[in-house]
Amino acid sequence: MSEPNVEKNSTSRTEVSSLLEINRDPLRKGKLTVGFIVAVLFILPIIWMLLVSLKPNGYSTTNPLDWFLPPFTFTNYIDIVVDSLIIRWLFNSFLVATITTILTLILTSLAAFAISQMKFRYKNYIFIFFLLGLMIPGEATIIPLYEIVKSLNMLDSYTGLILPMIASPLGVIILKSFFDNVPKEVIESAIIDGCSNFKIFYKIILPLAKPAMASIGIFTFIGSWNNFLWPYLSILSENLYTLPVGLPVFNATYSQAYVLPMTANAIASIPVIIVFLIFEKQIVKGISFTGIKG
């Protein structure tokens, strides 16, 4: 089939070009096979974790295939819920991540609105001051942060977990560039209609910025859910542990028995896996967006 014929053909162009691609790439089958094997290897540990969590407590085997075959049972989940603090830690993680996300969105969108749409003195200096935050690695300032949070009497508390994480300069920058792109006419006509600043922010700008807010929200949530170093340093009471800090404590009491630790890991993972499967498209878009900008 020569090129000009393809162009005249009545079949849609994309279909033809994908047909062509299939015909033209002799390695396609090989590539797909490699892709399939790698993809299976990538999720194999996760599937293994989920299956081990369904094995009878104390189960052990030297044949790796046995893990994938019955008997299966749900009793481990009940044991963990009843006998351990895992559910409490799950609740803590959820609470901290949710409040952190909500506060981050409120603070960053308000600040981004002021910088994008309002007129005030020293605006550029303030924005540059916020930009500096991009260069400050939290890991390298965590020791003084500990002292500051201690002097505010917020160590070992939800407040101490949440407040240090809510001022995200990257969020302000992303939202500002989003707000900048809202058509001027829309805002001007709102001003003529007598809308207050807050009404413009709340009724016009925020609804238009939903995609950016969603990306920032999802990333803040996952970041907080998985945050390890800060809760590891600042939380002392077992009751206030988040999952990433509590799980190792729980797991460390088992060295050869697999079933209960894997159940705990599964309980910690299933919520994020569900969130991921629901929001996959936004997450992937959000990464290319935030990753390149930030």
Binding site: I46, P248, E280, I283
Partner: peptide, 23 residues
Amino acid sequence: FRSSFFLPSILSVAVISFLAIFM
């Protein structure tokens, strides 16, 4: 392909570490 390659990234460091230890 995309979901499988990306899925491990969303797991907590505690989970992936203990998966590694036990595996």
